[in-house]
Amino acid sequence: MTAVQLTAVILWLGVTVYAVFGGADFGAGIWDLLAGGTQRGLRPRALIADAIAPVWEANHTWLIFDLVILWTAFSGAFAAIMSTLFVPLTLAGLGIVLRGSAFAFRPMASRLRERRLAGAVFAGSSVLTPFFLGATAGAIASGRVPVGNAAGGLIGSWLNPTGMLVGALAVATCAYLAAVFLVADARRREQVDLERYFLRRATAAAIVAGALALGGIAVLRVDAPALADGLLRRGWPLVLVSGLCGALALVRLQRGTPRGTRALAIGAVVAVVWGWGMAQYPDILPGSLSLAQAAAPAATLGALQIVFIVAALVIGPSLALLFNLDQRSRLEGHGLGHDSPASRGS
């Protein structure tokens, strides 16, 4: 494998991990949005907050990781994407600010009204952000981002059938992933009713995501024939794997046997992301820029690879520690000044 290919693979791994963990994180916010009135939504919302609080910042650091690799290793592609897709990416960036800060502030709000506002902002931006990130992916994959400084259509590049389809698919996938994860979280906390609650939602989200994916193929054939072609000709094994994983997970969820569904759901997402990668390889901007053309000089890629090795050596174990402590429930009882009797009483 060449240094360029290796860097591209690592970039794509970063995108995949963000799609899974960032996706599940956004999805949890979507279920927060859909949890209903204050009383009815109380327990699901509490589970959601509890489940993502210790890990949301780490989950989103993957996005930074991806941006930084892209701008260092494939600078020309980064410049083209960020300038042509100015609108959806500005909105996604602002969505990330709104979401993160609302989530951080919500437990501190003392009045119900403030807490509702923070909750609404958190949940609303959990839908909008993945939607715009998805629209961005759709614009790139369908070859609508040419090389240059804002050389593509400011609106037309993403506000089109493919952009909207991928945006919607991203939202549905996030919701699906999150529901599957939350089933496991509820089970670990022995909250049987919530387990069933999220089981039902996981099933619904799986059906919606599957329908979007299937219908999407028809949309792509018309709106982005080159992408459809790449997906079906070269990416088909992965598309198939994704479909199988999704279907299998659905069957298990239907039967109420959630064991293994987490792995299947992750598998479905991973396969789609790599199917997309296969479909456009060896281009980074389909039809206008190949990975090799965009790649930074060898010394830069070499230095990046050293950074990756160090990162894998230190971040890998640290993340494992975080997730391990989290799964063993060593990180509950948040440190946010909430667990003293005085505040509990108020």
């Binding site: 989103h60 996005l63 930074i64 941006l67 930084v68 690799i69 701008w71 260092t72 290793a73 600078s75 020309g76 980064f78 410049a79 083209a80 994407i81 960020m82 300038s83 100015f86 990416l89 500005t90 996604a92 960036g93 602002l94 990330i96 600010v97 993160g100 400084n149 804002a150 930074a296 000089p297 830069t300 230095a303 990046l304 950074v307």
Partner: peptide, 27 residues
């Protein structure tokens, strides 16, 4: 995170031309 977006959203030519050099510290 917004700043990372802005490096590209606002200054694509800076990043497009010099990302290969001064992108490294950010990595």
């Amino acid at each position: 995170t917004v700043l990372s977006f802005e490096m590209g959203l606002l200054w694509p030519v800076l990043m497009g031309r010099f990302g290969a050099a001064f992108g490294l510290p950010f990595a």
